[in-house]
């Protein structure tokens, strides 16, 4: 079959990109290979591990379960957009750092994007809420407890910053 190409325009972390892409290119591969934003990781490529989680119009989704063409006209946020000026860690990143919420770091971009959307919708979560929100992100290193601690601390830091 001749390749089926489409012109698409997406905004990623506030920057607009126009590209010509094959319809069968997954959004995860588009970000990594076309836009060279390799902070979005891929683990399983069938929706199970959560490493590829990004925000689509502010909502956490698996980028391995979307086609790049489907992102046409939408706003995406990826791990590259979290840090502030001069790469200053944002409160969620800072809490992960302080609570030793990562070891190899492979799962970390997906976890940070998942929890960015979650903490925005749930500024005062219980520990159970945090565990439920994390249930779709597999981490092979940390045993999760430090991530949960980090997220409780991040929620508090975000609340303080907002008040």
């Amino acid at each position: 079959m001749a390749s089926d190409r489409h012109d698409i325009e997406v905004s990623v972390n506030g920057t607009t990109y126009r590209r010509d892409t094959d319809s069968r290119t997954l959004l995860s591969d588009f970000l990594r290979h076309e836009l060279r934003l390799a902070g979005t990781h891929v683990g399983c490529e069938h929706g199970v591990c959560g490493a590829c989680t990004i925000l689509l119009d502010g909502v956490a989704v698996r980028s391995c379960l979307m086609l790049a063409v489907q992102a046409n006209g939408h706003e995406l946020s990826t791990i590259e957009g979290l840090a502030g000026k001069g790469n200053a860690l944002n409160p969620i990143q800072q809490a992960m750092h302080e609570h030793h919420g990562l070891q190899c770091g492979y799962c970390t971009p997906g976890i940070l994007m998942t929890m960015t959307a979650f903490l925005k919708e749930n500024p005062s979560p219980s520990e159970d809420d945090v565990r439920e929100a994390l249930s779709g992100n597999i981490c092979r290193c940390t045993g999760y407890q430090n991530i949960v601690d980090a997220m409780m601390a991040a929620a508090e830091a975000l609340r303080t910053a907002a008040s």
Binding site: M1, R24, T25, L26, L67
Partner: peptide
């Protein structure tokens, strides 16, 4: 690229 080729149409 994981999926086999196909034609994509946004209805």
């Amino acid at each position: 690229m994981k999926p086999a080729p196909f034609k994509y149409v946004a209805a």
